[in-house]
Design a protein around this nucleic acid. Structure first.
Lengths: 289, 289
DNA sequence: GCTTGACTCTCACCTAAGGGGAGGCCTCAT
DNA sequence: ATGAGGCCTCCCCTTAGGTGAGAGTCAAGC
């Protein structure tokens, strides 16, 4: 029968002997027979297929613990897991590409055309809001919830930018800090109360007039799902705002780039009816004092 | 002046205290002052810019040792380095995407349409060859050299596939094993000697008739530069060939998927005049006994 | 001036996926 | 039976930090 030594098996599977011993120890790929006397490992020819699978999964940088689970699960489920995993990898890769481009521009001294800073006056306005303490995945869910609430119920159209919904990060959203995050939609002041009565889930509040510095986010950088970390955009946008503040002789601290202070806003200019995928424009704004 | 403690600096730079201490130790980012008595680290406000740069470079998974060098080098050079590095990252990512697709197809039980195996008869033919022991980067250089030799000197056109140049991997090409690798171009037998006299750098040999099993490589998977590792294609193609051999009841070993035996061939159907970028078709073949 | 609480220090150990080597058995072919 | 090469375990090393212990330090309030 096809019983081979570890060296031969390593050659055929294109895995190293060290790796095979580790996989044995971790229970990922256990030799069919281990000589009790000598401790020699013997593998069966039929294990080659598994070994090659493990090698390929490792090339995708999937952790051994996960591989171990994938091996015992249904292959179709495993395929789905890989698909989902790969989606995450792609999005992380896209974010890093964005960052690399930005860095190359920055270091080579070119003014990057992306992330140009502008300012705008925001008049006092009336908002319908949904505010909650959420963690990282919860922030995305909150946005979906807000969009779902607004959809299919009557809302008077407001001119483009003025009616754009936006989210405010009142605090850091991370593993150990949970916002809060608030989603808002401006509505005409005239019949605010009447409108608000259609949305018992949302609260009505008035936002004072103020000025904002903002950066338009590249369209392909919009988050399209949970865990699509917008951290890179957040970072690049605040970097741009900081640079802008310095250039105009402002104290960067007065821009309050830390959300604790005035709340960082992300504006979504969504077309009506609002859906998750309908935001053709998105910017990152910070009010300044 | 702007002298801040490590905690404050960590907050502003969005780096962890642990990371900052490590960067100090490794000489990547050294505090402007370290209290001799207490050992407390004090950073200058002006170091924030560097700190943010380090943070971004780390997000690109650039090793700290490299970052240290980038920080002291000319920014334009650094930008070029990043550009080159990112190209490598992109190509590795493409290879992994290929692999992920293959795996999902494999596990979900679909017949993958890529990597279909076919066989062909190769008649005895006369070849002009360039053979050398090369390591991984050398293999690419050898191909460029071969292409450069063939370019601009008279060669009778041969019908498409029959005249396609190809490379033979006579041995494994890796860090510790260096081939040899041979590049070949079929020429008409009739006036072989006359032709060969134009190419003193190349050797003339006759290849015996044989059969090959081969797999067409996806067009976007062609290596386009050094270090673009074709390892993934190599792997997927041999996987396909192995599966094919098993399906047809052949002993996979008789296919000699290890290059030591009969030599694995990669065929480039290049248009004339031959240039590095002119191969619209590429396959991976293994002779069988 | 003292206390308290927050901040910081060093040191040592941990992670994942192996690589490298030392010292000692094991197996196989001659 | 003997040498060569294969294999064993055990230990340390890598990267970029994270976690915690125990001790020292800083600044504010009293």
């Amino acid at each position: 029968m096809g019983e081979v030594s570890i060296g031969e098996f390593a050659r055929r599977s294109r895995l190293s002997i060290k790796a095979l011993r580790l996989y044995d120890e971790l229970g990922v790929l256990i030799p069919t027979r281990v000589d009790g006397q000598s401790g020699y490992r013997y593998y069966d020819d039929a294990q080659l297929e598994t070994a090659r699978l493990v090698a390929m999964l490792r090339q995708l940088e999937i952790p051994l613990a996960t591989i171990k689970e994938l091996l015992v699960s249904d292959p179709v489920d495993a395929a789905q897991w890989i698909t989902a995993h790969w989606r995450q990898v792609e999005s992380a890769h896209d974010a890093r590409r964005e960052l690399a481009d930005y860095l190359v521009n920055l270091l080579s001294g070119k003014e990057s055309t992306m992330y140009e800073v502008a300012t705008r006056e925001i008049p006092e306005r009336t908002l319908l809001c949904l505010k909650r303490n959420v963690d990282e995945p919860g922030a995305w869910a909150l946005g979906k919830e807000f969009v779902a609430i607004l959809r299919d119920r009557p809302l008077p159209k407001m001119d483009g930018r003025a009616g754009a919904m936006f989210s405010i990060y009142w605090g850091e959203v991370s593993a150990d800090s949970d916002g809060p995050v608030e989603w808002c939609k401006p509505i005409p002041e005239s019949d605010a109360k009447a409108l608000a009565s259609h949305y018992p889930e949302l609260s009505l509040r008035t936002e004072p007039a103020h000025r904002e510095a903002y950066v338009e986010l590249p369209n392909d950088a919009l988050p399209t799902g949970p865990g699509e970390n917008p951290a890179v955009q957040w970072q690049l946008a605040s970097e741009a705002l900081r640079a802008w503040a310095v250039e105009y002789g402002m104290d960067p601290e007065s821009l309050s780039l830390r959300p604790e202070d005035l709340g960082i806003r992300i504006t979504y200019l969504a077309s009506e009816p609002v859906t998750e995928a309908s935001a053709p424009y998105c910017d990152f704004a910070v009010p300044f004092a």
